[in-house]
Design a protein around this nucleic acid. Sequence first.
DNA 1: GTGAAAGCGCTAACAA
DNA 2: TTGTTAGCGCTTTCAC
Lengths: 336, 336
Amino acid sequence: MKKIGLKDVAQHVGVSVALVSYVLNGQAEEKQVGKEIAEKIRKAAVELNYVPNQAAKSLKTQRTQTIGLVVADINYRFSSGITRAIESEAKRKGFTVIFGSSNESSAKFDEIVNVLANRQVDGLILVPVQGSEQTIHKLQQSEVPFVLIDRNFQHILTSSISLDNYKAAYDSTSYLIKMGHKRIGFINYETTMFNLTERNRGYKDALKAHGIKPEEQWLQRVGSNQKSDTAKGIDRLLSGENKCEAIFFATDRLAIFGLQHLNELQLNVPKDISVFSFDAAEAFDLFYCPVTHASQPLEKMGKMAVNSLIDIINKNKVINQIYLETEFVIGKSCRE
Amino acid sequence: MKKIGLKDVAQHVGVSVALVSYVLNGQAEEKQVGKEIAEKIRKAAVELNYVPNQAAKSLKTQRTQTIGLVVADINYRFSSGITRAIESEAKRKGFTVIFGSSNESSAKFDEIVNVLANRQVDGLILVPVQGSEQTIHKLQQSEVPFVLIDRNFQHILTSSISLDNYKAAYDSTSYLIKMGHKRIGFINYETTMFNLTERNRGYKDALKAHGIKPEEQWLQRVGSNQKSDTAKGIDRLLSGENKCEAIFFATDRLAIFGLQHLNELQLNVPKDISVFSFDAAEAFDLFYCPVTHASQPLEKMGKMAVNSLIDIINKNKVINQIYLETEFVIGKSCRE
DNA sequence: GTGAAAGCGCTAACAA
DNA sequence: TTGTTAGCGCTTTCAC
């Protein structure tokens, strides 16, 4: 069964390829193609099972109908979730996604962005990493459309979709306070990334707003040695006379390390200690106690990122910064 | 900065496009291009930052350098793992991967395969689902290269990469027996898929080989209501006088449901019951006890699938059925 | 309303 | 050894 081309359809109907092209690209009206002819063409196309050759189309239009996606680490649940969401929305809009993972390295990030741009993607969706400002700047100079997702930079004006991290952390902390806790520890990464520092700010402000003085040692920072740093952080939170009675983890990965350590310490959640996580990991499924957490609207983020990007690709030049809210999933990990 | 094409490089060096094409496609020797010229061309290409236009290339060569991947359900850890492995190997070989998920539905599977084939992928890597024999047959008639992965059909001869499921189950069961267990329950899906039925066979044969008569009620089958069926299955295994002292889960998903239920029953692993899982899920991380399990060589499978497929694409017509072995990861979930 | 035809950037057969 | 050139299948301008 030979491959059907535009020409074959044209021949079949007895018209020129131009007409077929117009009709099949939804320009029938615009080009004032005869109604009947148009109908015939559409019918013939399905009958013959015509499938446009994307390569030829791309060659002519200079658009590849692909978008490049760079995530920070494919092992994050955020990454796989957002990838899925982006992929499905992209497909709906007739785009294919090709992607790469920077593993939180700015050098790798720069490399991948270049590779994808060279692959002549029509646009990029990026989760920038710490230290990637240069790459973003370069991108702004070039003509490649892109949007940032999950993270953005305070001092670079680009289209982006992210969370209102301040509010999410503020509300989460307030929830713990409402549950009767006063000494609330917060475990976050040691970082300058805006999205994470905003969580610190939200946490502290919530304490203050409720008349609690945030002790410096309540905020523990985790470096590159994630597992052991988290464990150490917890140990510190649980020592001394000002012992915390609740722990708020700034990410789901930190929560995993933390819960593992609590298991090791044989501490029961929520009996011995309350736990709140920013975002959930699949691994929570097997923890004996459902973990109360803030939940990121991945579907929505992915969808908005794709549509935002397509807008830019189509030259609707607006810088669009969107901040979404998290939802709360109440489990049983916070004692009342 | 305008886009550099073959022509630009040719002009820059002062030769024809043909030479540039030859050299940049590694045919310098073959076409006996002058050494010096070749060198000049290569140098100019990097200098000018030449990037070939994939669309034009595809249009001419009728190859898209993409492979289509269809997994059974993107939520399986197997799926994400194998996708990653395939993606990275494909990239190494200059291929892009586009993929879809059948959600274990043969109708969806058929649809996706068609969509991908129409996207003119050069070949397909498929995790077939129950009832997809027709689609596979159609594929065999067509000229589209493909390999099956993880699962295959006994009565259809195609290239495939899968596990030696019989041996893996046999060895796993033998391990439990060696740990001193006699009454070993097995929880598997209710299915006719070869890869899973082979696990039943391996389980039973191992018991027999060690002089244990496999009781019919030791093998519990889980239907579409996975969570509750698993729970019921476990309840049955743990009731009566012939109560099982160990449970072997045929997949990691079943193990998750099972461990959740054991949590609900407040049974301690391994004190009250030993547990062995076929493959591990990320969620195991937060179970209080490291789960002993058989581990699938995802990296290897993905890599082999890609290379096997590329072989077929390049017309090295051999049917290649590869069966890999699992490895064992010893945790603490089996009492000695 | 419709058709003819010029390329998009590349490969490869053929000519020189 | 190197250059010329005919398309690959499609979009789109321009002519009718």
